[in-house]
């Protein structure tokens, strides 16, 4: 008698493979990541440069030396898009991981310890969910960091806008993960294997780390993937309004800031960065959807 033994990973992969859109999205994101990750290398190979201002060649149409044309300062658009993508993806992923870590910690504590701590944390979460997100984020993005007593070197550093946007967006994005993790922790806590390890004298920290967290991994991965798309959107909105990532650092969002005034002269400037944000976000959403279908045994 021959019996094929399916390893869980193989089953998972088989289920995930059926989701053709998710596969396509995953591949697309990999390609985007490779392009952005190796941005300096690609730009060197293509002999492009997104920093050189050339006022005699503004709004050039696509040509051999400028594959997508030039912007209002005569900089190469393709190079700007690649550099912008590097920043947008980096900020999006960092903020999403950060948000997911906060959410996991709060959800775990809330679900595992229960009682007053749970009530307090969940009230806070509900409170944050019931606030007008974007208007408040704009205030946070506008505050003067030196008044918060942060060291001068951090406030004036070139990358200050990067750190600030990561923190702001993460502060807004952790609630979904926190609720999800709490709900699953509540259910897991009552299971026999958790009780057994409590009886054996395991500390709370050990139970959470060794027994609960691995069981939540699938849900956290799905939620993080789905929220990465949203976080990239949020970052691009803030950057578009001039409050996120500050020039001269390019991001897909701030490439669109000037594009609005230029739609009569150079509509292509408004098209490409937005299209890239759109494609990236939709890919993250499809990927998350596919992962959920593959990882969720109920579906």
């Amino acid at each position: 008698m021959t019996e094929t033994v399916h390893r869980p990973q193989a089953l998972l992969w088989a289920r995930f493979r059926q989701h053709r859109l998710a596969i396509a999205s995953g591949s697309l994101l990999l390609i985007l990541a490779c392009i952005s990750g190796g941005a300096p290398l690609w730009l060197h190979l293509l002999a492009l440069d997104g920093q050189t201002v050339d006022l005699f060649n503004r709004f050039q149409p696509a040509s051999a030396s400028h594959p997508l044309g030039t912007d209002e300062l005569g900089r190469d658009l393709l190079a700007r898009l690649i550099e912008g993508g590097r920043i947008s993806l980096l900020v999006g992923l960092t903020a999403a991981l950060f948000a997911s870590a906060i959410g996991t910690a709060i959800g775990l504590a809330s679900g595992y310890f229960g009682g007053r701590l749970d009530a307090f944390l969940m009230r806070c979460t509900d409170g944050i969910i019931s606030l007008p997100l974007l208007p408040l984020l704009i205030v946070l993005a506008a505050i003067d960091l030196s008044k918060l007593g942060l060291p001068e070197a951090v406030v004036t550093s070139e990358n200050a806008s990067l750190y600030r946007i990561c923190v702001i967006v993460a502060l807004a994005g952790w609630t979904t993960v926190a609720r999800l993790v709490r709900a699953e922790t509540l259910a897991l806590r009552e299971r026999d294997f958790i009780r057994a390890s409590t009886a054996q004298g395991a500390t709370s920290l050990r139970i959470m780390r060794v027994h609960i967290l691995p069981n939540l991994a699938a849900s956290i991965i799905v939620a993080t993937t789905l929220s990465t798309g949203n976080i990239i959107l949020l970052e691009s909105v803030l950057s578009f309004l001039g409050l996120g990532i500050q020039p001269p650092i390019a991001s897909w969002g701030n490439l669109l800031t000037n594009a609005q005034e230029l739609i009569w002269e150079a509509p292509q400037l408004a098209f490409y960065p937005g299209a890239l944000i759109f494609v990236t976000v939709i890919a993250f959403n499809f990927l998350g959807d596919g992962l959920r279908d593959a990882l969720d045994p109920k579906s």
Binding site: V237, F240, L256, A259, Q260, G274
Partner: peptide, 22 residues
């Protein structure tokens, strides 16, 4: 549906502006 939740709202506004106004 996926396109609707993934499109940057400001870019959509710019596209509509380009198409109908420009």
């Amino acid at each position: 549906v996926f396109a609707g939740i993934s499109v940057p709202p400001f870019w959509l506004a710019l596209l509509l502006m380009m198409l109908f106004a420009v």
